[in-house]
Amino acid sequence: MLYREALNLALDYAMEHDQRVVVLGEDVGFYGGNYKVTDGLYVKYGPKRVIDTPIAENSIVGTAIGMALMGLRPVAEIMTANFSMLAMDQIVNQMAKLRYMSGGKLILPLVVRMPQGVAKQLAAQHSQSLEHLYASVPGIYVMCASDSITAFHALLYAIKMDDPVIFLEHVLLYGMDFPFEYLEGFDPFRARVLKEGKDITVVSYLKMVHDVLQACSWLEEKDGISCEVIDLVSLRPIDFETIYKSVKKTKRLAVVYEAPKTLGLGTEVSARVAEELFYFLDAPPLRIAGEEVPIPYNRKLELLAIPTSERIYHQLLSWSKNHGL
């Protein structure tokens, strides 16, 4: 099942079973969504529940908050995470704060979905990864999906939750086909161990998970190095328990993410592991991440700015060689 079909299925399922679920955003209705995630919902549920909005990101999230306060369960789509910068007030100052500031009186069952990441030559204002901004804010949950199984189950879970959720998708995943199955008791707050291994724990999320899996299969085939690959579904909170358990076994941690290295999510994961498991480690934690530049338009430069499976492979290899593997 395509990634975007899995997201669509979650929305459709939720709207069918719960009249309170509404979808809103730019082009989500009549047009079917710029990435076709909401395709078909407008015809099935009508314009009152599948709401086309003006290009007004702050008020898209703002009106969704008002709807949630009244007992609806809105799922707002921001066309890309880049544009969500216009909604930072509503996300950071409002949806993350209202419950706490009201002493628990206000309830915000609200999901804000947005795709992020580098696609192909969309230039700096359409290519950012911004998860660390949201993952640093108490009061919201931040989830992301790396494949169709997580896309369906995590989004459905987010819609069912009575708390506000930022739900991150990756632009390059929408058209990708993944195996699909219905899972009982899916828990988005548990990181997924996608591949077991004994030498290195590699933590990643969203699209980078697939580049990591490729790099790790080369490491195994060519160099006999065995990696344990962990896919974070929840970025706030982070499932450190699963990470610690794995690192205690492998004694090495690498984190791979697309955003610039400085203050990215991997910085937090590395710091926590260094704080908690310093004496277990055989190597300093490694971050493989984006370069410290806006994403350039030129394809050659663009690919230099973010980790690729080849570079992940080479960096993991040289780092492990330098540290006793």
Binding site: G62, A64, M67, L69, D89, Q90
Partner: peptide, 12 residues
């Protein structure tokens, strides 16, 4: 910031 909340509430 609360003005869109009122609009969403009214919509709901």
């Amino acid at each position: 910031a609360h003005i869109p909340h009122a609009v969403g509430a009214g919509y709901a």
